[in-house]
């Protein structure tokens, strides 16, 4: 097997690029702050303006860290799903995680006008939205787990995941039809995704969740490589199919679920980054692919976030739109240039 070492140069290059993008991301924003002052506040020295330090430490830094976490988690969970379903169109949300979260948030925001009294006392804040999203995705995932226990075929599981997605989407549609204009707008804004709403406490929590997800992923590397041969071969080389399938699904749920709860359903990254990495590294060995997708995911997300905040202006664009606008042409260009899809 080609080991990690033979890709050392590429990895060093991406890490340097990632650090550069991280600094650029922090130094750009709606308020212009000179680069020197950015460094100063990062290293805890006092800056010329008190507010600059506050902006950097409490707004831009958590946002950049969130961007890295979101990019890493979504790309890795996309890779996991593509490998176990042997399907290039699979992404982190094929098992209905995002639709579950959407349902939770939709019921929370829009349902409150229909079932008045139950939710009316709640303040609709980012924390309670996150709780609603977690509950929603947990319920959908739990149903998937119950079903996964009954079906042997992994492909059937994929279809069932998509069906759950359709059901929740139509419930959301029904809710949107009956809800008020303001509530609908609020829901739409959530569904655009956002990286900037997290306080440091929430970022720490997210780091913990992502860490657990990553540990589970690393444990599954061996069986992921075995899945490249198909399920029957995987079984013949000693892989416990049921156990590793559960492990991989759990890892995906933790990674994609926690991200969706805090940052909304961020599309595209999870589907695209694994393809991007396979094209650039020309390998399918998960020893290489997992760290590589994590780094590329973080990189792409940082770039998208930098673009989305439209430097030196008061606007910021919805991150969900930017990920596709920036990412899709890259994938199309790579596919055309290499003339062959690597999967």
């Amino acid at each position: 097997m080609n080991s990690l070492k033979s890709y050392r140069v590429q990895f060093i290059f991406i890490i340097i690029l990632l650090c550069a993008c991280f600094l650029i991301n922090i130094s750009l924003g709606s308020v212009h702050i000179p680069l020197k002052e950015v460094f100063k506040s990062l290293f805890g020295e006092s800056t010329d303006h008190q507010s600059w330090q506050y902006i950097i430490i409490n707004y831009r830094l958590p946002k950049a860290v969130t961007a890295i976490l979101v990019g890493m988690s979504l790309s890795i969970s996309g890779l996991l799903m593509q490998t176990i379903f042997r399907n290039p169109l699979a992404g982190p949300f094929v098992l209905g995680i995002s639709s579950g979260a959407s349902l939770g948030v939709a019921i929370f925001i829009m349902g409150s006008s229909i079932f008045t009294g139950i939710f009316a006392s709640f303040m609709i804040s980012s924390v309670s939205t996150a709780i609603a999203a977690t509950l929603g995705s947990f319920i959908v995932l739990f149903s998937i787990f119950v079903v996964a226990n009954k079906v042997r075929d992994t492909m059937a599981l994929l279809i069932i995941g998509l069906m759950f997605g359709s059901i929740t989407a139509s419930i959301v549609n029904v809710l949107s039809y009956f809800t008020s204009k303001e509530k609908l707008q609020q829901y739409i804004f959530w569904s655009f995704g956002s990286l900037g709403n997290l306080s440091w406490d929430q970022v720490y929590l997210l780091i913990c969740m992502v860490f657990i997800g990553l540990v589970l992923t690393v444990i599954s590397i061996k069986s992921l490589n075995a899945f490249l041969l198909g399920e029957n071969y995987a079984r013949s080389i000693g892989v416990n199919l049921k156990k590793s399938r559960y492990l991989i699904i759990t890892a995906t749920s933790i990674l994609a679920g926690s991200i969706t709860a805090f940052a909304g359903p961020i599309a595209f990254i999870g589907l695209a980054v694994p393809h991007l990495t396979r094209q650039l590294f020309n390998t399918q060995n998960h020893h290489v692919l997992i760290p590589a997708t994590a780094l590329y995911g973080a990189l792409l997300m940082l770039i998208c976030d930098t673009v989305a905040q439209v430097p030196n202006s008061e606007f910021s664009l919805p991150i969900n739109a930017i990920t596709s606008i920036v990412g899709a042409p890259v994938i199309i260009w790579l596919l055309i240039r290499k003339r062959k899809m690597i999967f």
Binding site: L228, G230, G238, T283, F343
Partner: peptide, 26 residues
């Protein structure tokens, strides 16, 4: 059955046969 991952090199594919003997990351 055909293997789904055609982008493996020959030596990578053969090395997957060693999985029962390798450590937890392979």
């Amino acid at each position: 059955e055909h293997i789904p991952a055609k982008n493996l090199t020959v030596i990578e594919l053969i090395a997957l046969g060693r999985q029962p003997y390798t450590n937890w990351v392979g």
